[in-house]
Write a protein that binds this DNA or RNA. Sequence first.
DNA 1: CGGCTGACGACCT
DNA 2: GAGGTCGCCAGCC
Length: 129
Amino acid sequence: MASRKASASRYDKDLHGPLRVVGEGFHAQVWERVSRVPRGSVTTYGDVAAALGLASVARQVGWALAALPPGQDTVPWQRVVNAAGQISERGNGARSTVQGKLLAAEGVELTDTGRVIDFAAKRHKFDVT
DNA sequence: CGGCTGACGACCT
DNA sequence: GAGGTCGCCAGCC
């Protein structure tokens, strides 16, 4: 992101065998989980990933949501924020503004710094299934 | 194949 | 609480 040291030699996937965690139905699984988040509650990328049994693919969750068609209303992507309870800018301030507006309409207010008020209490807990 | 960049997270200062 | 670093996986050039 910002800077980070360049990856040593990327990742030795062959060293760990079939470590490919993100497969074909990954997007669908992410969208289904997000769709289960009740109105007025929020969740994090990490929580969604953990709910899928993939605790270290929070980044891919955001990647999956980014693949959603703009303006779609079937998946409440606005209820997904980062672990700090803040809305990510993802380079485009327009979308983050819309997200904050949608959340406000659901009763989820944000502070001046863009952080969800009482985040810990509004944070949704996924079923362990 | 090498190097960078992300809708992220945990840790450290 | 704020800001910087490292680690993860995937997509691009």
